[in-house]
Lab assay of single mutants.
Amino acid sequence: MTTFKLIINGKTLKGEITIEAVDAAEAEKIFKQYANDNGIDGEWTYDDATKTDTVTE
């Protein structure tokens, strides 16, 4: 398992969460579901060097 981080730069929700996932694709799926569940819809970027997804509304 690898640690992945999501940075949220939303209009109403800001912060970050960290998860353990098998790979980047699994982490992205989990993060996008989390964002959807919390009403966050924005531009996504991924930095492989830091294993960090960022969503900005």
Rank of each mutant, 00 (worst) to 15 (best):
M1W: 07
M1A: 05
M1E: 06
M1R: 12
M1K: 14
M1I: 08
M1H: 10
M1V: 09
M1F: 11
T2H: 13
T2A: 07
T3Q: 11
T3R: 08
T3K: 10
T3Y: 11
F4A: 01
F4V: 05
F4Q: 02
F4G: 03
F4Y: 12
F4M: 00
F4T: 01
K5E: 03
K5Y: 11
K5D: 02
K5S: 03
L6I: 09
L6N: 01
L6H: 00
L6G: 01
I7P: 00
I7Y: 06
I7G: 00
I7R: 02
I7H: 04
I7C: 13
I7L: 04
I7E: 02
I7F: 04
I8P: 00
I8D: 01
I8Q: 00
I8T: 00
I8N: 00
I8C: 13
N9I: 13
N9G: 02
N9D: 10
N9Q: 09
N9R: 09
N9T: 05
N9Y: 09
G10T: 14
G10C: 15
G10Y: 10
G10A: 06
K11R: 08
K11I: 15
K11A: 12
K11Q: 13
T12D: 10
T12A: 07
T12Q: 10
L13M: 13
L13E: 08
L13D: 06
K14F: 09
K14P: 04
G15Y: 15
G15D: 09
G15S: 11
G15Q: 14
G15T: 13
G15A: 15
G15H: 13
E16T: 12
E16M: 11
E16D: 03
I17T: 00
I17L: 12
I17P: 00
I17W: 11
I17Y: 10
T18M: 10
T18F: 12
T18G: 01
T18D: 01
T18L: 11
T18Y: 14
I19A: 01
I19P: 00
I19H: 00
I19V: 09
E20Q: 13
E20V: 15
E20C: 15
E20K: 11
E20N: 08
A21M: 05
A21R: 02
A21V: 07
V22R: 13
V22T: 11
V22N: 09
V22K: 12
V22Q: 11
D23A: 06
D23T: 10
D23R: 01
D23E: 01
D23N: 12
A24K: 14
A25D: 09
A25S: 08
E26C: 12
E26S: 11
E26M: 11
E26K: 01
E26A: 12
E26P: 00
E26I: 04
A27C: 12
A27Y: 05
A27Q: 01
A27V: 07
E28W: 13
E28A: 11
E28P: 01
K29W: 10
K29D: 03
K29Q: 10
K29R: 14
I30D: 00
I30V: 09
I30W: 13
F31G: 01
F31K: 00
F31T: 01
F31N: 00
K32G: 01
K32L: 08
K32M: 08
K32E: 01
Q33G: 04
Q33R: 10
Y34W: 15
Y34N: 01
Y34P: 01
Y34H: 03
Y34C: 08
A35G: 02
A35T: 08
A35I: 13
A35D: 04
A35L: 13
A35C: 15
A35Y: 06
N36H: 14
N36K: 15
N36A: 15
N36C: 14
N36W: 15
N36Y: 14
N36E: 14
N36F: 15
D37A: 10
D37I: 10
D37G: 02
D37L: 09
D37T: 06
N38W: 14
N38G: 04
N38S: 10
G39C: 11
G39V: 03
G39M: 04
G39N: 10
G39P: 03
G39D: 07
G39F: 08
I40D: 01
I40Y: 03
I40Q: 02
I40M: 03
D41L: 11
D41T: 13
D41S: 12
D41M: 13
G42I: 07
G42F: 08
G42P: 03
G42E: 03
G42K: 04
G42C: 14
G42V: 09
G42M: 05
E43L: 10
E43C: 14
E43R: 07
E43K: 09
E43P: 04
W44F: 05
W44A: 01
W44H: 02
W44G: 01
W44R: 02
T45L: 09
T45W: 11
T45H: 12
T45Q: 07
T45D: 04
T45C: 14
Y46R: 08
Y46D: 01
Y46G: 02
Y46E: 01
Y46W: 12
Y46L: 05
Y46V: 04
D47K: 05
D47W: 07
D47S: 06
D48M: 09
D48C: 13
D48I: 13
D48Y: 11
A49M: 10
A49F: 11
A49V: 11
A49T: 10
A49C: 14
T50E: 03
T50V: 06
T50A: 06
T50C: 14
K51N: 11
T52C: 12
T52A: 06
T52M: 03
D53R: 15
D53S: 15
D53M: 15
D53V: 15
D53Q: 15
D53G: 15
D53N: 15
T54G: 05
T54M: 09
T54S: 09
T54H: 07
T54R: 05
T54E: 07
T54W: 07
T54I: 12
V55I: 12
V55A: 03
V55Y: 06
V55F: 06
V55H: 04
V55N: 08
V55R: 03
V55E: 05
T56I: 07
T56C: 11
T56S: 08
E57T: 09
E57A: 07
E57R: 00
E57S: 06
E57K: 02
